[in-house]
Design a protein around this nucleic acid. Structure first.
Lengths: 148, 148
DNA sequence: GCGAGTAGGTTCGCTTATTGAACGAACCCA
DNA sequence: TGGGTTCGTTCAATAAGCGAACCTACTCGC
């Protein structure tokens, strides 16, 4: 039996899960965000099986999260770069980072943190409503039909 | 070969991916957030294989995202309820929701939206720095060691 | 008392995915 | 000629996912 697909479900969470809901894709995206662009660099960083990395990158290219760019013709060499769609995924990883740092580490917290590139201050991501700035938590949210 | 585990990696994204990085767990969490608490309700909603749902729920209980509560003794009946750790995961799904709604649907957008429970207004989640309120995007963030 | 129904799973046989290691292809340099 | 680099593919074995059927422990209607 093939894996169940969610990529045509009406729920946004389902479609996103179809795309990044596996054990390697979020980490591949993380490496791309951190500036690793070459196959071997990602493979060594994650120690991911090469066949799996090739399959994940192919899927990300198909979905236009990433483009494969030749940076050298002879010998042919390629690198993988984030598209706008891919870059815009970063806040999702930032939200995951925050939750994980809060709940999956001991009291000392993780050995790495997010910092503002200019001020150097530690950044703690939270998720808020774009219009009101109010934190998005379950008690204040419901699901409904789009207006009109 | 066993699946590679990330749950002791120093990177928060890796640990979170180990826990929710599969094709069903985010959707199980979604159902719990939407108030489905019983095994059969989740199974029918997602049409997930029963064995897979049992394994996912067991993992979520082990990780203390969810507690299994008997709500009836004879006959024995159970339901699954989110813990604080589980409820705090909602912003991650909200960030996924926003990205997915922006990039994985046609111009009309998804047929469901998030709304403020009181005002009824549409909520568009964004990820910002808790202290400054500045949007968290890749250009302004770097990774560093925690202070001190 | 007996069969049907319900909730919450487990077991079964089969298909697909993941794994580490080895192998290729296409070029470079000495 | 022989190695090195980069970007993969192929391989056999193991693990995970799949739908369907089955199990347990009750309740209810007759």
């Amino acid at each position: 039996m093939k894996r169940t697909r969610f990529d045509d479900w009406p729920c946004p969470i389902a479609r996103a899960t179809d795309l990044i809901g596996d054990w390697w894709t979020p980490l591949v995206m993380r490496d791309l965000f951190f500036g690793r662009r070459r196959f071997d660099a990602i493979q060594e960083s994650l120690r991911i099986p090469r066949a799996v990395l090739a399959a994940r990158l192919e899927r990300l290219v198909d979905e236009e999260m990433v483009v494969k760019v030749a940076y050298e013709d002879r010998p042919p060499r390629y690198e993988y770069r984030l598209t706008d769609k891919g870059r815009d995924f970063w806040p999702v990883l930032a939200a995951m980072w925050r939750w994980s740092a809060d709940w999956l580490f001991d009291a000392a917290g993780p050995p790495v943190v997010l910092k503002n590139r200019e001020t150097g201050r530690v950044v703690n991501p939270i998720v808020v409503d774009e219009d009101t700035g109010a934190p998005v938590d379950l008690r204040t949210i419901r699901v409904g039909r789009p207006p009109h």
